[in-house]
Amino acid sequence: MSRDGEFLEYVAAHRGRMLRTARLLAGGDHHWAEDLVQTALTKLYVHWGKVRQTEGVSSYADRILINAFIDERRRFWRSRETSTAEFDDPQPPRGPDHADRLTVLDALARLPRRQRAVVVLRYFQDLDVAAVARVMDCSEGTVKSQTARALTKLRDLIDDPLDTLERAR
């Protein structure tokens, strides 16, 4: 199979998962999530010749996604927002409980980015500590400490969702 064919096959199988991960990372910002996925897939294509010969493409793609998410704060400009003539806001993702989703997303958005990434990788993608450390290029101890801090903050935020949301608005 050609390079492009393999890449398209991978994208078709994993784009949805990447987009859901990106939604959590972006704290519910769907545009930002789409930007992150597109950025990650573009970088993945550039390195596809090397990546496809090794196993763990998904891990590599996750790493690109996480790095794109974390690195964006390092830019002094934010280019992902552009003005458009028409309001083109896609429908929010459907879910069983819209209020809970907003609460969780809002709580995630209040976490520092690395803590947010740790939570998403560990509890959404079900990666163990070592795998998260590899993806985030940090030590396992850092993953554990970031996880502990993130969970503590999430408990505080999610246990009192109404109050939190009120203050957020």
Binding site: G16, R20, R94, G95, R101, L108, V120, F124
Partner: peptide, 19 residues
């Protein structure tokens, strides 16, 4: 943590239709 996983899974929404 099962609860958190469920919450995250729901918050992530459904997979969009890929075109």
């Amino acid at each position: 943590m099962t609860n958190l996983k469920n919450l995250l899974d729901e918050a992530a929404g459904s997979e969009p239709q890929l075109t």
